[in-house]
Amino acid sequence: MVKGKVKAKKSVKNWRKEVLTYVMVFIAFGFVMDAWRTQDMPLDSMPAITGMTQNNVPVDVITMSKQKPVVVYFWATWCAACKFVTPTINWLSDSYPVVGVSLNSGEDRRVLRYLNAKDYHFNNINDVQHDISSQWGISVTPTIAIIDNGEIKTITTGLTTPWGLLARLLLTQI
């Protein structure tokens, strides 16, 4: 009977170790992918994001970031991963300033209808001419940058969890 309990404890211990190993590999893979996807982005000097949102709200990300970290969210209406990330961005916009930049998503009315249909209320600039996305070197949607005091503090691409994004925001304030 004792051998069975010892064997069961070893099995649980091995299972935990294996799960932890997979989690660590997954996290490392995410960091490598972020580094590769953001290699053409201007990490040293932040290009300005200014303009009018689709709801006619003036936006200046650098000025906004002097008061509180700003989440800049490069996304598209057709992006499959964005369908999972955008609700998190919308949720964060209740506590943090968010500026969405929609890419290749059509004319302003189409993007505004999309945002309204999904009940998303974050500020959004429709980058129809690709001016902002070109200056930023965006190659993947979604891409999320956190700006604090006019500096890029962190950038992530692809899928992210609400807790991962919130942790990034909290770490920028330390």
Rank of each mutant, 00 (worst) to 15 (best):
K3Q: 15
Y114A: 01
H130C: 07
K13H: 05
K68D: 11
N56V: 08
L112V: 02
N56Q: 15
I27Y: 03
S102H: 00
Y96S: 05
G137I: 09
R110Q: 07
V140K: 12
N56P: 08
R109N: 12
V72N: 01
S65Q: 01
K153S: 07
Q173C: 07
M52V: 08
D34Y: 12
A145D: 01
W78R: 10
V23A: 12
I144L: 02
T154M: 01
T53W: 01
I138F: 06
N123M: 06
E107N: 15
A48W: 05
R109H: 00
N116L: 00
T50R: 07
V6L: 15
D127L: 06
G137W: 09
K13F: 09
S105F: 00
T63S: 14
M41W: 01
F122W: 08
P47Q: 10
A48R: 13
H130R: 12
M52L: 15
I49D: 02
T53L: 04
L92H: 06
N56W: 08
D94H: 09
A167I: 02
S45Y: 07
L170C: 04
K153Y: 02
S93Q: 03
Q135K: 10
W78L: 05
V25Y: 12
V128S: 12
W36L: 15
I147R: 01
T157V: 13
T141D: 14
F26C: 08
L159R: 08
M46E: 02
I49W: 12
T77F: 00
G30R: 10
H130P: 06
V85Y: 00
K66D: 14
T86N: 09
K68R: 12
V61G: 06
P97A: 07
T21M: 08
C82R: 02
Q135Y: 02
I144Q: 05
N55A: 14
G158M: 10
P142T: 05
H130F: 11
V12R: 08
S65C: 06
M46L: 11
A28V: 10
I155N: 04
P162K: 14
L166E: 07
D119T: 13
F29C: 13
Y96E: 04
H121K: 14
K66H: 12
L43R: 10
S45L: 13
T157Q: 08
K13E: 13
V23P: 00
Q173N: 09
A117M: 01
P58R: 04
Y96A: 11
A167T: 12
Q67D: 13
L166Y: 12
Y120D: 04
T172A: 07
A76N: 04
L170Q: 10
L103E: 03
I147H: 01
D44F: 06
G4M: 15
A76L: 01
V6F: 13
V25P: 02
A117L: 01
P87Y: 05
